[in-house]
């Protein structure tokens, strides 16, 4: 999976990104831990690059596990 054709779910923390990646894997969603650097959100932020799913669907799934994307 390349980062170009996937969307980014911003979780802030790298630890949370790894946790979310494991949860998604258990739910058959493949995701890659990655970083986004944006001045508007305070600099570097960690999250997941996800492909082949709708962002809303993945966000909802994570919220079900009490992980709230930024």
């Amino acid at each position: 999976m390349t980062k170009d054709d996937s969307f980014f779910i911003n979780l802030g923390s790298l630890t949370l990104a790894h946790k979310a990646q494991k949860i998604l894997a258990e739910n058959s969603v493949s995701a890659t831990v990655g970083k986004s650097a944006r001045a508007a959100s305070g600099g570097c932020s960690w999250g997941l690059y996800v492909k082949g799913r709708k962002k809303e669907e993945v966000t909802l799934l994570l919220r079900a596990y009490s992980i709230n994307p930024l």
């Binding site: 802030g12 923390s13 790298l14 630890t15 949370l16 650097a37 001045a39 959100s41 305070g42 600099g43 570097c44 932020s45 960690w46």
Partner: peptide, 16 residues
């Protein structure tokens, strides 16, 4: 901390 580098303060998230 590897996150929110532009902030003057440590992030609120644990463990970072």
């Amino acid at each position: 901390s590897g996150i929110f580098s532009l902030s003057h303060e440590m992030p609120n998230l644990l463990p970072e």
